[in-house]
Design a protein around this nucleic acid. Structure first.
Lengths: 120, 120
DNA sequence: TCAACATATGTTCATCCGTTCATATGTTAT
DNA sequence: ATAACATATGAACGGATGAACATATGTTGA
C-alpha cells in the first residue's frame, strides 16, 4: 500500500468509472475554465454590477459614477480598473475627465442572461 | 492650505448633474442588482465552474465529481450546496448515491455567454 | 512654471470564502 | 439493529478581496 501522497485520491467513494472517463475526455482545458471563472468573478460584486448597469444608460466619468453609487472616488477607480482589465468597459480621456463606457454588447447580453435567471 | 478633510459625500468631483439624475432614475432596485451579483458570484469560482462543465456532459454523483476534479468529497459537497441553493443544479437520491444534474438550459446559456466573451 | 482639479495607485484593515478535518445524517444489506 | 458506505454539515484556518486613506500621476489654464 503506497502512502497516498494525495489523500483526496485515497477516498473510496462511489464512482462510475466509465462515466468519469468519458466526462474527463470532453472537458475543456483547466486553463480555459479558470479564465471563465475569472470573468464571472468580475460580475460577482454588487459595486461592479451597479457600475455596469449605470453604464448601460450612458457613458459616464468617474465622478458621475461615484455620485451615482454614493461611493468614494478611490473605490470607484479601483473597481473600474478591474472592469477595464476584464475588457468589460472601455474609456477615453476628455480633458481632465476620463469617460467610461460598456465595451460591447456582450456585456449587456451576459447581464441579461443573469437577470433572466433571477426572474423565475 | 486648508486641511482637506474629505468624506465621500464631501468630494467635489467632476459631475454631470443632468446625466447623473437621468441615470439614477433608470436604475433597477438595489436589491435586484445585489441578487444579480450573487448569481454571478456563484459562477465566479473555478471549482464550481468545473463542476458545472462536468455536468454539461452527464449527470454525476458526488463521488464521480470528486474524482473528475481530483478534489475531496467534502469540498465537492460544500460547493454543490452552493450550486443547489442558487438553483443551478438539481439532484435526486438513488440508493446511497445522490445524483446531480444541471437545473436547466439557462445555466448552459450563461456559461456559453461567458465562454464567447473569452474567445475574442 | 505653479495651482487646481480629476483620476490612478499603493497600503492597510476588516471581512469573506474555499478547503480541510472531524463528525453527523441517511441508506442498504445482513 | 448494526456495519459499511455515500453524502452532508459544522468549525477552523489561511488566502483573497473591497473600501478607506494617503499619495502619486496626469491635465488644464493662468
Amino acid at each position: 500500500m503506497a502512502k497516498s501522497k494525495n489523500e483526496n485520491m485515497g477516498d473510496f467513494l462511489a464512482v462510475h468509472q466509465d462515466v468519469v472517463k468519458r466526462v474527463l475526455e470532453t472537458q475543456p482545458e483547466d486553463e480555459v475554465l479558470y479564465e471563465l471563472a475569472e470573468i464571472f468573478k468580475v460580475f460577482g460584486d454588487s459595486t461592479r454590477i451597479r457600475i455596469l448597469y449605470a453604464l448601460i444608460e450612458s457613458e459616464l466619468c468617474v465622478g458621475d459614477i461615484a455620485q451615482i453609487l454614493n461611493l468614494g472616488q478611490s473605490a470607484v477607480s479601483h473597481q473600474l480598473k478591474i472592469l477595464k482589465d476584464a475588457k468589460l468597459v472601455k474609456f477615453r480621456r476628455e480633458g481632465k475627465v476620463v469617460i467610461y463606457a460598456l465595451d460591447d454588447d456582450h456585456v449587456r447580453n451576459i447581464l441579461n442572461m443573469g437577470m433572466e435567471h433571477i426572474e423565475e
